[in-house]
């Protein structure tokens, strides 16, 4: 379910069925990497939308967690942990982060949720049909990881 009035209303009715929160991680930077950071955000957004479509009834897709890459450093990790805490307090059992930014990899141990690092594919120049195909092929790879995660604590 998406972070929209319509879906949140639906979520309220079915909260016990929705035990998973997905959060796209979105880097912001003004350096030379600006374009690649934008590409990461775009790609992760597309992937998160598709993931939400597949698992609509069991996941709540939060708005992107936005962070300043160079300025924030570890601060961003602490903030993300707060998101996790809030979700757990709300009774959510699985918190999944999607990112294309490999710098999160080094904090993976420290993070309390599940980090899914997606290697960035340059989809922005593809024609819409091929773009869709690429995204759904990638999603096929991720679905089993999440289904595996769910098996650990079945509803």
């Amino acid at each position: 379910m998406k972070w929209s009035t319509q879906d949140v209303a639906r979520y309220k009715e079915a909260a016990s069925y929705v035990d998973t929160v997905i959060v796209p991680l979105m880097p912001v930077d003004f350096g030379e990497d600006m374009k690649s950071k934008a590409a990461m955000g775009e790609y992760v957004n597309l992937m998160t939308d598709e993931l939400e479509r597949q698992f609509h009834g069991r996941v709540l897709q939060l708005p992107p967690f936005t962070y300043m890459v160079t300025a924030e450093g570890e601060q961003a990790v602490l903030r993300l942990k707060q998101w996790h805490e809030t979700a757990v307090e709300a009774g959510k059992q699985h918190v999944i982060y999607l990112t294309a930014d490999s710098s999160w990899k080094k904090y993976e141990e420290e993070l309390t949720g599940t980090l899914l690092w997606l290697p960035l594919l340059p989809v922005e120049d593809l024609d819409p049909k091929l773009k869709r195909k690429t995204i759904s092929d990638q999603i096929e790879q991720i679905l089993p990881i999440i289904m595996e995660e769910w098996k650990k604590s079945p509803q």
Binding site: R10, A14, Y17, R53, Q54, F55, G57, W150
Partner: peptide
């Protein structure tokens, strides 16, 4: 049920059926 995407023979335990991975 809640709008997930089902798949044909999505689970090995249930052949010849549409399976919803969420619930």
């Amino acid at each position: 049920h809640l709008g997930c995407t089902v798949s044909w023979e999505g689970s090995e335990d249930y052949p010849e059926m549409f399976y919803c991975p969420c619930h």
